[in-house]
């Protein structure tokens, strides 16, 4: 399968994520959109890793596909982010009884 299939998919996911972050005000949905963007990046990492691995295999059959290890990094970071982010959202809900991010602009005062 040519790599650009993956690229289109990732771009589509990423764009959905970006647009979701931009137009939605619900913190949880924004949060999910952020995850979507992260996973779009993950998908690309895996796809490119595979592509490079195939190229390398032609000259060096023992080459390893180590680039995919980045995906784990990102998943760990995402997990950490989810825990912190959700905590913030919970606190936010407790304070404002809403998960609308625009309520947060009150911080500036």
């Amino acid at each position: 399968m040519p790599v650009y299939y993956y690229i289109f998919l990732a771009v589509a996911l990423f764009s959905i994520g970006v647009i979701g972050v931009l137009i939605r005000r619900n913190a949880i949905i924004i949060f999910m959109c952020v995850e979507l963007m992260l996973n779009a990046a993950n998908l690309l990492l895996v796809a490119f890793s595979k592509m490079h691995h195939q190229v390398l295999m032609k000259t060096n059959p023992t080459a390893a596909s180590d680039a995919q290890v980045f995906v784990f990094f990102i998943m760990v970071v995402a997990a950490a982010e989810v825990s912190v982010g959700l905590a913030i959202i919970v606190m936010m809900y407790r304070n404002t009884h809403s998960v609308d991010v625009n309520f947060l602009n009150r911080l500036k005062n």
């Binding site: 970006v18 972050v21 931009l22 137009i23 005000r25 924004i30 991010v101 625009n102 947060l104 602009n105 009150r106 911080l107 500036k108």
Partner: peptide, 14 residues
């Protein structure tokens, strides 16, 4: 520009 609206910030970032 520092309106405190997260959406604006993100829009600008994008």
């Amino acid at each position: 520009l520092q309106s405190g609206l997260v959406g604006t910030y993100i829009l600008l970032m994008v």
